[in-house]
Simulated assay, not measured.
Amino acid sequence: MNTNEHETDPGVAHHIVTHRYVQRRLAALPTGPEATDARLRGLLAIFDDITAKGHPEPLALLAGVLGIPVDTLVSHLRAASRPWGENR
């Protein structure tokens, strides 16, 4: 496969577009220690969004963009699902 073939492959193009979409959403999340709850809720919203859009492996996608193991992402998503104010 030459370099230009992957650019026209619909599956590769969709992957690139989805990856960039997740990157933009992550970049828009609040940062800093005071924003931990909001950031976790944002991660959950991104996960829910890409799941609803039918991505075949939303956990792997989100963890890959974040550069963390899937198990770590799952822990973050579980923390985001807790009622606010509950002990972490």
Results as ranks from 00 to 15, higher is better:
20 R>S: 04
50 I>G: 05
37 D>C: 06
68 I>S: 06
29 L>S: 04
3 T>P: 01
31 T>A: 08
11 G>E: 09
46 I>R: 04
64 G>M: 00
75 S>E: 10
76 H>S: 12
32 G>V: 03
80 A>S: 10
66 L>D: 03
87 N>C: 12
16 I>H: 08
39 R>L: 06
6 H>E: 12
38 A>Y: 11
20 R>C: 04
40 L>N: 05
58 P>T: 14
29 L>H: 11
76 H>E: 03
41 R>S: 13
41 R>Q: 14
61 L>Y: 07
69 P>K: 05
42 G>A: 09
71 D>M: 03
60 A>Y: 04
86 E>K: 11
84 W>Q: 03
54 G>L: 10
79 A>Q: 01
67 G>E: 12
38 A>P: 03
15 H>A: 10
15 H>D: 01
5 E>P: 00
7 E>M: 15
11 G>I: 13
27 A>F: 08
85 G>T: 04
48 D>F: 15
16 I>S: 01
25 R>P: 02
64 G>W: 05
78 R>T: 10
36 T>H: 09
64 G>Q: 00
10 P>F: 15
10 P>V: 15
20 R>L: 06
26 L>M: 11
36 T>N: 00
69 P>E: 14
61 L>I: 13
76 H>G: 02
31 T>M: 01
50 I>H: 13
32 G>A: 13
62 L>R: 07
44 L>T: 05
5 E>V: 11
76 H>K: 00
64 G>H: 09
18 T>H: 02
4 N>W: 08
41 R>V: 09
10 P>Q: 15
23 Q>T: 06
60 A>Q: 00
77 L>R: 06
42 G>E: 11
62 L>I: 05
28 A>Q: 15
40 L>R: 12
33 P>V: 11
22 V>M: 08
25 R>V: 05
55 H>P: 01
46 I>S: 08
17 V>W: 01
16 I>P: 00
11 G>Q: 13
12 V>Y: 13
56 P>A: 01
3 T>G: 10
83 P>E: 11
46 I>G: 06
2 N>W: 09
2 N>Q: 03
54 G>D: 02
42 G>F: 15
33 P>K: 03
21 Y>E: 06
57 E>W: 02
70 V>M: 04
83 P>N: 07
